[in-house]
């Protein structure tokens, strides 16, 4: 009797372990941090190409939301997404902030001259530490913050028209 019980116990154990492995086969393996609803500290960042320093909260004028797009001239996908960024700038209620990530000023300026400058303001993250405060880890990355600096949406990688529609819905 005891032997039969331990057999049944082990049988169920093995099957459930197999089931768990089966489930995890279909999970996303690469880790992508989900820090939606995190509140960001009101950090100060230097403006691109000037010596002005802005606190994030002070950037809001009468917009309710802020989009921060992290980009760099050396990042190829950033070139791809740039046309969509222009669409992003057409959304009302949304302050469009560019964060230039670990870039040389000259190259970044050339990038903007070639492709246009859709941003309301560009800040500069020369050593990459400001992006860490935003919970970002690469380029391109786009975050939508509300007026309390809470992350309400985050997109890793180049944005597309579907993402823009989602952002439109969020900010309405």
């Amino acid at each position: 009797m005891r032997i039969r019980l331990s057999f049944i116990f082990l049988f169920i154990l093995v099957s459930s372990i197999a089931l768990i492995f089966y489930k995890s086969l279909f999970e996303e393996k690469n880790y992508i941090p989900k820090n939606i609803n995190n509140k960001i500290e009101n950090i100060s960042i230097k403006e691109f190409n000037t010596e002005n320093i802005f606190f994030l909260k002070n950037l809001f004028e009468d917009e309710k939301f802020m989009a921060i797009n992290i980009w760099a001239s050396w990042c190829l996908p950033c070139r791809e997404e740039h046309q969509y960024i222009k669409n992003l700038s057409r959304i009302d209620n949304l302050k469009l902030v560019g964060l230039n990530y670990k870039d040389k000023t000259k190259n970044a300026q050339k990038f903007l001259e070639d492709l246009g400058n859709p941003f309301d303001i560009i800040l500069s993250d020369t050593d990459g530490t400001k992006s860490i405060f935003l919970g970002a880890y690469g380029v391109p990355e786009t975050l939508i913050l509300d007026s309390e600096l809470k992350i309400i949406k985050k997109h890793i990688g180049p944005i597309n028209s579907k993402i823009i529609d989602e952002i439109k819905n969020l900010t309405n």
């Binding site: 057999f7 093995v14 492995f21």
Partner: peptide, 17 residues
């Protein structure tokens, strides 16, 4: 591989008991 592995484990469990 998972199914095959589980099969082998269950067979050995069965024979063992």
């Amino acid at each position: 591989v998972l199914i095959f592995l589980t099969f082998l484990v269950l067979i050995s469990l069965f024979l063992y008991f």
